[in-house]
């Protein structure tokens, strides 16, 4: 048995020899540009003085981790980060899928193309521009949103100075900006579904709704699961620049997130050790999240990252 297995392995190695030649270049790339610079992580465990030795003076162990793990402000900020990420995931993740499915029901090829192209326009606005648009829409003096609200209620809302509104504003602007863009993948996946399946279903008398449930959604399921797993892994990586441009001290209670907190901390000092430690902490959580999601995906569906 053992020998057979080795033989089999050997045979596979030989079979894929050419593919090894192919994959060696990207692997060298990963080593060189992703793994080599990782030595920078040692900073999280070393005392660093700005401007002096780039990788710190001496080992301090978990000093920086203790520093933030025992800091009340840190946990408040961490809670904000987590809440914003979770809400964002729940809302922003399914919408592009629904959009792609709805778009798929548009019969006219030209309108389909047109809607698709237009829907991904906002992706190309830089964060400053998007924040500028948000601010002018929500402005109590000139914004259309407040004019509508005033018409109905007679009052105005200071959206940007109300802690309760921050998450809504952040998430909806994200949906607006990235819905069309994120839908592209699903649209591409939809085009991979075999037309014959639909034809067969129609002969069987399945209506459009049933076709969607039984053919379309299973057809894009692998893409959905991969994207979901990655979205969970990346959920803590919140668009930092947008928060920075949107928030002000009065809404810190909901808007202050890990990245802005660390950024403020290091702004007039290159507080590298502390921020590296926080970053490492965040990375670990992300990795655990990804791993868990992938584990569930593998257990309960046919698709997973590995």
């Amino acid at each position: 048995m053992h020998t057979l297995n080795t033989k089999n392995n050997f045979w596979r190695l030989k079979k894929y020899g050419l593919l090894y030649c192919l994959i060696i270049l990207p692997i060298v790339y990963l080593v060189l540009f992703k793994y080599v610079p990782m030595y920078g992580i040692v900073l999280a465990f070393r005392q660093h003085y700005p401007g002096r030795a780039i990788f710190g003076e001496h080992w301090v162990g978990l000093k920086y981790f203790k520093m933030f793990l025992t800091d009340n402000t840190f946990w408040k900020v961490f809670k904000n980060t987590l809440l914003l990420s979770i809400f964002n995931l729940i809302i922003s993740f399914p919408i592009p899928i629904i959009f792609a499915l709805m778009l798929n029901e548009i019969k006219s090829k030209n309108s389909k193309k047109f809607i698709q192209t237009v829907s991904y326009l906002p992706r190309f606005f830089s964060t400053v521009v998007v924040v500028g648009i948000i601010k002018s829409l929500l402005s109590p003096s000139t914004g259309i949103v407040n004019e509508v609200i005033q018409f109905f209620t007679g009052d105005k809302i200071l959206f940007l100075s109300e802690p309760g509104w921050f998450r809504t504003i952040y998430i909806f602007s994200d949906v607006w900006q990235f819905m069309g863009w994120n839908a592209i993948l699903y649209i591409a996946a939809l085009s991979g579904i075999d037309n014959q399946q639909y034809e067969a279903a129609m002969i069987d008398g399945a209506n459009r709704w049933k076709q969607t449930i039984h053919i379309t959604i299973p057809g894009i399921m692998p893409t959905i699961i991969i994207c979901f797993t990655l979205a969970v892994g990346n959920m803590l990586m919140i668009g930092f620049e947008k928060v920075l441009l949107l928030y002000s001290p009065i809404i810190y209670s909901t808007a202050d997130i890990l990245q802005t907190f660390v950024f403020r901390m290091g702004i007039d000092q290159g507080h590298f050790s502390y921020s590296t430690a926080v970053g490492l902490f965040q990375s670990l959580i992300s990795l655990v999240l990804l791993w868990t999601t992938n584990w569930f995906a593998r257990k309960y569906t046919d698709y997973s990252l590995w």
Binding site: V131, G132, K135, S139, P140, S141, L158, L160, S161, S248, P249, I250
Partner: peptide
């Protein structure tokens, strides 16, 4: 201006 803290 109530927007004094957030205007661009």
């Amino acid at each position: 201006d109530p927007e004094f803290a957030t205007l661009d």
